[in-house]
Nucleic acid binder design. Structure first.
Lengths: 310, 310
DNA sequence: CTCCATCGTTGGAGCGCTCCAACAGGCGCG
DNA sequence: CGCGCCTGTTGGAGCGCTCCAACGATGGAG
């Protein structure tokens, strides 16, 4: 039933026929127990609500289908303890490998798992020789944003960050560095947030309390940008006439004409695909030298940015 | 290690200590093989990109956590063959039960599975005594939409449907029935679509070709409404001044001030929770009489609806 | 002191597979 | 005709657990 070449065609046909008649279904547990591998990989998704992760998932599933692996998905309910529990589930299930997409877990916990099972981390940088990683070059992304805004004539460019979210720290650092590169170090202004639209709303409130509103805001992602714009317009502030706003991730939200958000695109399906490829190398070829791949983002200019008010 | 009462405290402590020292992790496959159950349920999600399903998932995970089950998620990549494959995976893994959220599979395939394993279907109605189901009352939802629009003075109310998507057929039937109930049977106009924003764009194009634009459009879901509004505004048609638009599902998209979409809310987390509860009854109490629960939706009035143009 | 119930502990069968050694049979070759 | 080789087939051990019968120790009742 598993396509062994040591079985004659005639017998194979008879076995298959009998299996169908008895509606026999192989027991993956027994098979896994005996063969000591499962051809299954577990994917820990940071969260289900953000379509960003869904698109990475598309790439992972594509890669898995190509290599004949089945994929099991789990979330951590947006909390580290939850992530730990689903990780534990995958380990008890003895998945052959693990893809962690934007995990919130401490690095140490991830490395500990990697001692048991091949692990690749996506959308979060991690310094370890035991795990592979696929990250977006957040510095390039942040530089694209700041460069674009500076080109338009902005100087007062604030950043609403993504808190402890995946890639948020690097995005923030990239912003600060890019500002300095443009000689705008003294205008650096980071408003704390997370990757939700309500964080955008809160950030807008804080910005409005400032003696002088920045002329441009670089939001940690599209959701934050959406919340931010919502709240700003509620106060009668026009985007981009009064304030330019840039998002990040190029989700469908940004593409909606209603939003028409200038944003940074990450090649998400590619990241997922790449992650699976890298994982397969560790699982099947037993590669031990770590791969830390970095993909390059691009700027998508839409209607939410323009020159600063005169 | 599994909390048996037949083990003395002292020995239990010693065993646990040894397990930790050896970093022993129980093998779920061996355990499942021997015990003939896995305390795991599989969830087949229609798709990952639509946050609607993510919120149902929240309810399912809550229920699972409460009853001590682990949850494995799979998608069918938006294609029935894909759904069939992940279903097969769950069956080979011998999950104790299955939650199918908006499955695209033919009823017959679902019923066949239900002969093996407890199954509950969410967000799609199914007539079978072998499977349970939790659905939204689409007729009530459609009636709320049409009633709201009629109250505002609309008569020419078109519907962009969701094609073969989960609940779309019932939504369409509800629309037609509600129109008739208001004596508006001759104004019934259904534009074919699916649950995506590009379907909304296509529908807008078709509506614009009409000799007379309807004064209101009931979209199959919020994404369709978003695409529709985008395209209409591109043509200089104002919402709601020229055309009122109603969405469905009350996703965060609808709540964005930018969209401010009048829509129908379904109690999604409740649906997920309820689904798990029902599944547990079949798994643990061996209930065999089917449960077909129906939840009641509500109307959320926002800024995309208003009186028809004079 | 014996008997029996209770509480823990131990050992072995068996879950449904894979893997591999052993084997059967057919064929070509010397 | 015997030998070795190749192609298939068969049987049995073992994967890491659970479940349960059997067993030992302890203590209270008669």
């Amino acid at each position: 039933m598993r396509g062994s070449p040591k079985v004659s065609e005639e017998r194979r046909a008879r076995v298959l026929e009998a299996a169908a008649r008895l509606s026999y279904r192989p027991n993956a547990m027994a098979r896994g127990l005996a063969s000591r591998h499962t051809r299954t990989v577990g994917v820990l998704l940071n969260e289900l609500h953000n379509p960003f992760y869904a698109e990475i998932m598309d790439g992972i599933e594509e890669g898995a289908a190509e290599h004949g692996y089945r994929v099991l998905i789990g979330t951590g309910g947006r909390r580290p303890p939850g992530e730990r529990a689903t990780l534990e589930t995958f380990l008890e299930l003895r998945t052959d490998g693990l893809v962690l997409v934007g995990p919130r877990l401490p690095t140490q916990a991830i490395v500990a798992v990697a001692e048991t099972t091949p692990v690749v981390v996506v959308a979060r940088s991690i310094r370890s020789s035991l795990v592979d990683s696929i990250t977006n070059d957040e510095h390039v992304g942040a530089r694209l944003v700041v460069g674009h805004l500076v080109d338009l004539g902005h100087r007062l460019i604030a950043h609403v960050d993504g808190g402890s979210g995946a890639g948020a720290r690097a995005r923030r650092a990239g912003y600060q560095q890019a500002m300095r590169e443009h000689g705008l170090g003294r205008y650096v202004h980071v408003v704390p947030g997370d990757y939700t639209d309500s964080a955008g709303v809160r950030a807008a409130v804080r910005l409005l309390e400032l003696p002088r509103l920045p002329t441009a805001v670089f939001a940690a992602n599209d959701f934050v940008a959406a919340g931010l714009i919502d709240r700003l317009e509620e106060e009668g502030i026009r985007v981009p006439a009064d304030v330019s706003v840039v998002g990040y991730d190029n989700t469908y939200l940004a593409a909606l004409r209603h939003m028409s958000l200038t944003t940074i695109n990450q090649p998400r399906p590619d990241m997922g695909r790449r992650a699976f490829e890298v994982l397969v190398e560790r699982m099947e070829s037993g590669r031990v030298v770590p791969v830390h791949a970095r993909v390059t983002p691009s700027l998508v200019v839409r209607g939410s940015t323009g020159p600063p008010p005169a």
